[in-house]
Amino acid sequence: MFELIQKLFGKEAQGSKNIAKERLRFVLVHDRVNVSPQYMEAIKDDMIKVISNYMDINENEMEVNLTRSNTQVALVANIPVNRMKRTNLPSE
């Protein structure tokens, strides 16, 4: 009954466009994942740069991938660590 009243006065209408936007956003993350290997390489290179400030890593064995499930897309990185760089710990 309450719903009906809401409907009558148009309050329920958050509008289907928000559903459209949300679905599009998600589907485009999936679509864009396929776009280019160079893109993934660029991410990988930047990650190496940052992480190398803190530890020695095995760049050859490093894996960076986008994985997808039904509900989300995740960036998964598997980075073998050779040695920690104790001296470069950020001091605050």
Partner: peptide, 16 residues
């Protein structure tokens, strides 16, 4: 339809 929120607006599409 845009006004009613039942169609994506210009800003929505540009943003996406």
């Amino acid at each position: 339809m845009v006004k009613k929120g039942d169609m994506m607006d210009i800003d929505d599409i540009i943003e996406i």
